[in-house]
Structures are given as C-alpha cells and as structure tokens.
Design a protein around this nucleic acid. Structure first.
Length: 228
DNA sequence: GGCCAGGACACCA
DNA sequence: TGGTGTCATGGC
C-alpha cells in the first residue's frame, strides 16, 4: 500500500495554469536594469503603456543609471508619460538610480549580493518601491526565490477560496511560500501565469466564466466581491 | 464616456 | 493602524 500525499491546491492550480498557457518566459526585458525600471513604471498601469515608455527611454539612450540621474526630472517625466503617473514615477525612477549610485557604484551585482532579507529591506527603503515592486525586482532581476503578490494573485486566489484575508500582502505571500518549494524558476512562472490568467480570464468584473482552473475554483460564473 | 490596468505614498482620524 | 485621496495615460 503506497501512502498518497494529498496535493496542495496551490500545486494543482499551478499545473492547471501551466498546462493551459505554457511557459511565459518572464520578465519581458532585455536585462536586469530594464526589469527594475519596468517594475516601477508598471505600478497600477497596463504593460502595453509601460512598453511605450521603455521604448522612449531606450531610444533616447536613457536605460542606464547615470543617464537617468543626469536627465532633468521634467524631461524624464515626458519620456515616461505613456506609462501614466509620470511625475511621481519620474521621482521614483530617480530615487532608485540615486541609491544605486550612492551605495553600490551603479552595480546591480553588488546590490543583489545582499542576503535576501537585507536586499528586500534595502529596496523597500527606497522611495516608490513597495512590497510588490521590491519582490518583482528580487525575483525577476536578482533571480532570488521570493513569491510576488499582485492584484491578479489577490483576485484569483480569492475566487479560489484560498485568500481569506484579501489585501494582506504578507499573509498571502507567506501562504505561497509555505506550500511551494522555494524555487526561483517556479515562482517566476507561477506569477507570470497568474498575470496571464488574470488578463485573459479572471478579470476584475465580478463575474467570471468557467475556465482551465476548473473545479479548483469554488465559484465559477458566480458573482464575487465587487469594487476591488 | 466609463472602466480598468502587473502600486505606492501622503494624510487623517 | 486602517481607510481614503491622489497620481494619469491609453486601450477597449
């Protein structure tokens, strides 16, 4: 008699999403510094708009820390205008490259050499970098295993009945990291799959349709909490 | 014309 | 400590 270990719902969910969508090849960027700039610019913004802003920065030769420090803040804001909130995001980008220059000589390698808890604390201490942006940088730029929680993660897990404390970032992150192996590639793919599923199927609309998640979702097609 | 999109911060009670 | 307002463009 072989003892069968029940699969955790988070493992089953991952398998369903992966079999449905396949590998997502995240993060969509050429190099780690671009990941960081994109992570700041995508705050509460559709990625298509961020792509325009990144294209502007590259075209003007601004995708380097020194260039982003030298350019007048108003000019930087104009370049990233398509990504929305351009005045505050210009200050956020500037804050990051200033810290990177001051403490790490513009070396991401030196920044990323910090142990994970210190790296996260350092990123969180920079203006404009909150939990999600810090964790996105750690996972997708530094390539260290940490689970990124975003609006899609919150919404999808809530509809699965796996998120009793909606909006509590730390609790949901701890939940994932307690039930999954701490594997950078897995966390990368899982979050990317959430975004894919959230964009295509599990939308903000209070109604959702039956989908590849299937019976794991406790309320397919049923009205869920609105206004989130 | 309204809703939504891969948040974070300032301010207030 | 938690709730609310602010920041803003672009696609559908």
């Amino acid at each position: 008699m072989v003892a069968m270990t029940p699969r955790h719902p988070l493992e089953l969910l991952y398998e369903r999403l992966f079999s449905c969508y396949g590998p997502q090849h995240w993060w969509p960027a050429d190099e780690p510094f671009e990941v960081i700039i994109g992570a700041i610019l995508t705050q509460s913004t559709a990625w298509a708009n961020v792509e325009k802003a990144i294209a502007n920065l590259k075209r003007e030769g601004m995708m380097t820390p020194s260039a982003l420090r030298a350019i007048p803040i108003e000019a930087l804001a104009r370049l990233i205008r398509p990504s929305g909130y351009y005045n505050v995001k210009a200050r956020k980008v500037r804050a990051f490259v200033e810290r990177l220059g001051e403490r790490y000589g513009d070396s991401l390698e030196r920044l990323f050499a910090l142990p994970l808890p210190e790296l996260r604390a350092e990123l969180l201490s920079i203006y404009g970098i909150g939990y999600e942006t810090a964790d996105s940088i750690i996972l997708y730029a530094a390539r260290k295993p940490i689970f990124v929680v975003d609006a899609y993660t919150q919404r999808i897990t809530e509809r699965l009945g796996l998120n009793p404390d909606y909006g509590n970032y730390a609790a949901l992150q701890a939940f994932f990291m307690a039930h999954l192996p701490h594997d950078e590639a897995l966390f990368n793919e899982y979050h990317a799959l959430f975004v894919r599923h959230g964009k295509e199927v599990c939308r903000k609309s209070p109604r959702c349709e039956p989908c590849c998640v299937g019976d794991l979702c406790r309320r397919p097609g049923v009205s869920v909490t609105e206004g989130r």
